[in-house]
């Protein structure tokens, strides 16, 4: 028997927990189309009231950075402390930033 998994594309699921927050990646699932991915995401990822909004996107539509590029992508920023806004004096009233 052919594995159904081979036939259904993978979708990544993003959920917004409440208004004002960003959508966050929560996981992935298999579905035949975007509509099915959306309803399945509702059943798989929001059944305990985890969300108010769902995005799904085909996993193949995501372009990701390669682990091999880690050196050239990220390492050069490690010694550029001046890019961090840590040299300002903040008034106490501002609290956590």
């Amino acid at each position: 028997m052919k594995d159904v998994r081979d036939e259904l594309p993978l979708f990544e699921v993003f959920i917004r927990a409440k208004n004002g927050l960003d959508h966050r990646h929560v996981g992935s699932l298999h579905a035949s189309d975007a509509e099915m991915a959306l309803t399945s995401a509702r059943d798989v990822y929001t059944r305990r009231s985890e969300g108010v909004s769902i995005w799904v996107v085909k996993s193949t539509d995501i372009t990701a950075s390669s682990p091999d590029d880690k050196g050239e992508f990220f390492d050069p920023n490690d010694d550029k402390m001046y890019r961090h806004p840590t040299f300002y004096n903040l008034p106490d009233e501002v609290g956590h930033m």
Partner: peptide, 12 residues
Amino acid sequence: APILEEELALAN
């Protein structure tokens, strides 16, 4: 159920 996603949907 034929797939995990539907397993959860049918149970829900």
